[in-house]
């Protein structure tokens, strides 16, 4: 075997993304929700790297840098929200923060 087919890398990224999505959908604890989000972002970054190395272009790495920046920003804001949620409701269950019900 000589080299990895690009599909395999992309399938790995898709799998990780689907797992993150799954966690996002059924976890109620906000810590796990945020971690699932991180997984999904990381999967997107992986897809960029796979494409970048597959085509031997540096653009993939540049986009991965942007994804990492986004992940850092998202994590800081998300964790601040988490602290605020816990402060208000004394729980991490995001279902309690449902005052926007129509």
């Amino acid at each position: 075997m000589n080299g990895v087919p690009m599909e395999h890398g992309l399938v790995l990224a898709a799998t990780l993304f689907a797992l993150g999505l799954c966690g996002l959908m059924f976890r109620r604890n906000m810590i796990f929700v945020l971690m699932s989000l991180e997984i999904m972002l990381n999967a997107a970054g992986l897809a960029f790297i796979v494409a970048g190395t597959g085509w031997q272009q540096p653009q993939g790495q540049v986009m991965f840098l942007l994804v990492i920046t986004l992940a850092a920003a998202e994590a800081s804001v998300g964790l601040a929200l988490l602290i605020q949620l816990y402060h208000r409701f004394k729980t991490l269950n995001i279902d309690v923060a449902s005052r926007m019900r129509g």
Binding site: M25, D95, S98, R101, G102
Partner: peptide
């Protein structure tokens, strides 16, 4: 009615 306010539902 679909505006449940629950984040998971939206996801």
């Amino acid at each position: 009615r679909t505006q449940t306010g629950k984040l998971r539902g939206y996801a």
